[in-house]
């Protein structure tokens, strides 16, 4: 049997008040606690001045390396600890290395079935005589695509960091003229002979990437070095005839998107057991090994442009 309560009695019970407080309908302290408005905080001007002085003194003391004994002690300790840590690290690594299997032997965990597969089936599956080129541009082509994008993103970031606006640019050009030799006859004569040879050698390395040592990255670096030499000898006026920011943008865009599309096609057909229209060719011929030659050219273009762009941006803040 439940007892019937009146409304007033119910309102006095603890649970009713608790629920009202819980639902936020009632402030339990209203009318019970006395409240005064707080005084606003006012900074004493003298105290503020003293505080500033002390702050400056602390800064001077802490960051004055010549007079601060604690900092000097800390620096000495830091040097000693870092040398000791380096020695400890050397000892640790040497002990670890002494337990590794001997260099040059065959029965090491590195020489596993992956390497065996690459060597035994690489020529047949990729058509490249150079097994490393077949590996990085066919089996692991997305890795190389990522590398090219790393280079591109690095160039873009350097461009963001070092780019100058119009007025700064003219200052930089004046500085450039002051510090760099202009129209150096010896350099120009040497460059006239060397630049074509260097660039042809770079092109040879790129085109020969699937047949011998070389490939897009090394050949692109050689071409970039040739361009930098040309720039040093003849100045920005000559190189800007054929290489500007626009050229860089379009070359990188076309190379990277060609790489991406071509390799996506190749992976799609390979994964779905479809017939690929790209011919493998006879191994050893210059036009062979499917996509590796065009991909090498794309990577080489990106790398050559990147090397030149790095140099131009570090020297003048733009190109």
């Amino acid at each position: 049997m439940s007892k019937k309560r009146s409304q007033e009695e119910y309102q006095k019970t603890f649970s009713f008040r608790f629920f009202r407080w819980f639902n936020g309908e009632k402030d339990p302290y209203l009318g019970e606690v006395e409240m005064h408005p707080q005084e606003e905080y006012q900074l004493d001007p003298q105290a503020a001045l003293r505080y500033e002085k002390e702050h400056d003194a602390i800064l001077d003391k802490v960051y004055d390396l010549e007079r601060n004994k604690t900092m000097q002690l800390f620096h000495k300790l830091y040097h000693a600890t870092s040398i000791l840590f380096c020695l400890f690290l050397i000892a640790l690594l040497l002990v670890t290395i002494s337990y590794l299997p001997a260099t040059g032997t065959i029965d090491r965990p590195v020489n596993n079935e992956v390497a065996k597969r690459y060597i035994e089936n690489g020529l047949e599956e990729t058509g490249a005589v150079n097994i490393v080129a077949g590996m990085i541009l066919d089996y692991r082509a997305f890795d190389t695509l990522g590398e090219s994008h790393v280079l591109f993103v690095a160039t873009v970031t350097v461009l963001i960091l070092l780019r100058l606006n119009k007025t700064q640019k003219s200052d930089a050009e004046i500085n450039d003229r002051r510090f760099e030799p202009k129209n150096d006859t010896i350099l120009q004569l040497v460059a006239t002979f060397l630049v074509p040879i260097i660039i042809i050698f770079g092109i040879y390395i790129i085109l020969n990437g699937h047949l011998g040592p070389g490939g897009g990255f090394s050949g692109g670096a050689v071409i970039g070095a040739g361009l930098v030499l040309y720039l040093n000898a003849f100045g920005f006026a000559k190189t800007e005839r054929f290489f500007t920011e626009k050229t860089y943008k379009w070359v990188c865009f076309f190379s990277l998107s060609f790489y991406c599309l071509a390799k996506s096609y190749s992976f799609y057909t390979g994964a779905n057991q479809l017939h690929s229209v790209i011919p493998k060719g006879t191994p050893g011929a210059i036009l062979s090994s499917g996509l590796i030659l065009p991909l090498n050219i794309a990577v080489g273009l990106v790398v050559a442009c990147t090397i030149y762009a790095f140099y131009a941006m570090f020297r003048k803040g733009g190109f």
């Binding site: 390497a115 060597i119 690489g122």
Partner: peptide
């Protein structure tokens, strides 16, 4: 690891990886 005379046995070349 550059194939010479189309010899593709594991015992000829170093590890390319």
């Amino acid at each position: 690891p550059i194939v010479v005379d189309s010899v593709t046995s594991v015992d000829t070349y170093i590890n390319p990886i």
